[in-house]
Design a protein around this nucleic acid. Structure first.
Lengths: 228, 228
DNA sequence: CGAAGGATTGAAAAGGGTCAACAATGGTGG
DNA sequence: CCACCATTGTTGACCCTTTTCAATCCTTCG
């Protein structure tokens, strides 16, 4: 009911002019004159699997998505978290190279990849947008390689908090959709190390909690200092 | 002299039909009817810096290039090595987000980015190729995040050896252009740990050396076993 | 041939992982 | 609406892999 209302509200947005260059999915919808399908995934549900054919491109409406790769023994590396407004699942080749799962109950919009291919064949602007989306993911991956290869545990957690603060805070308090294990698998740490780093930041008065997943950054400057 | 001859030989290649989809730079040259400039960089010379305007797109003719990011205290993460035939330096945005340096004396071909933009404005195939190049870098980065976040030192070195074997071996012996520090900064390890892992593989008869940088893989199957 | 950078090896230290116990939280059913 | 229980998060102790620091060896190149 409420979900539906919010869904419709979101739905009308692309029909308006889109000056916002950050909403690349909106631009694609606009250009292709496509009506995106909405779809809901439950918490922990798989959206697509590694090596599956890439049939759709997705935008998160509400909820959150993780994409990851696994080693044969189950070790997992989360490549990215996708939050409302973010586009994911776009591939230049035929197949997905990561698995995507809903972290919480999640609503997405989706466009058929074949529709985009059709539009891209004649519309350079569409192809250019597809390129930009992939380039954004690459930029994030380049930053994340630096984190995974060269930052300490505390620096990783500080970087994570600032990234989430930037991306999902509208209010002063940020509500993390993911558990400690997800954060660990994103940062290349164990969940215990993440927990210890957060406790340390809490003890030093740099962050405060309301429950484990509601966090307020009390001192962004200090966090930024650990970030670079 | 010899350099020049080889350069010219390479130079004539794009004038022939290009069925090879892997030579994306060749495709770009073909489509834009551009004559690429050749340029030489000395060992350790910077090709472009982080946050510099991205004026050119490059292809390695011979030699090798590393791209990396630095933390403020000098810790370095190498994102990729580029070997003969590889394209690098292409950005969707205005600026480079990594520094590029020649690892050894290196010859590159380069195309003006503005020329590509012109061609891309009317030629969907060109834009599509630009997208594919960026998508290749992204795929590599996704694989590398898994390595940096979740693999052990020995697994990283095994993965590295197999990657280099695949990419630069024509002969049975591969000649690595980079030093142990470069390998460490690529794998998120110290140079000592890389050296110890290589010595271990040597002691177990899995690889043999001719000098520190000439390596033969004696047992790819065992290496593959450590890889996943 | 000698110097300088690169690579190897060793010993000690540290940072983060592992294992285990306990606490908090939030979802469900009575 | 409250109590219970499964899930999630925290904390502690110990261990192990990798790092750090240092000495030595090896090449390669002037």
């Amino acid at each position: 009911m409420l979900m539906q209302a919010i869904g419709n509200q979101e739905f009308t947005r692309p029909l308006k002019p889109i000056p916002d260059t950050t909403d690349k999915f909106g631009l694609l919808m606009h250009r292709t004159c496509l009506v995106p399908t909405e779809f809901r995934y439950s918490k922990e549900e798989e959206i697509y699997g590694e090596d599956e054919a890439a049939t759709f491109v997705y935008q998160v409406v509400h909820g959150a998505v993780r994409t990851y790769k696994l080693l044969s023994d189950g070790r997992r590396q989360i490549a990215a978290f996708y939050l409302p407004g973010d586009t994911f699942g776009l591939e230049s080749g035929t197949d997905h190279r990561l698995t995507a799962e809903a972290i919480v109950d999640t609503t997405v919009r989706l466009i058929k990849r074949s529709s985009l291919e059709n539009a891209a064949a004649s519309d350079v602007e569409v192809t250019r947008t597809l390129w930009n989306i992939t380039a954004s993911d690459l930029q994030h991956a380049e930053d994340h390689m630096l984190l995974l290869g060269r930052k300490t545990a505390m620096e990783r957690v500080a970087t994570f908090l600032l990234e989430m603060d930037r991306r999902l805070t509208g209010t002063a308090m940020m509500a993390l959709p993911m558990c400690r294990r997800d954060i660990g698998d994103y940062l290349g740490l164990t969940l215990e190390t993440v927990s210890r780093a957060l406790s340390d930041l809490h003890d030093r008065g740099i962050i405060t909690f309301s429950g484990a997943r509601q966090i307020v950054l009390r001192n962004r400057q200090l966090l930024n200092g650990m970030n670079v």
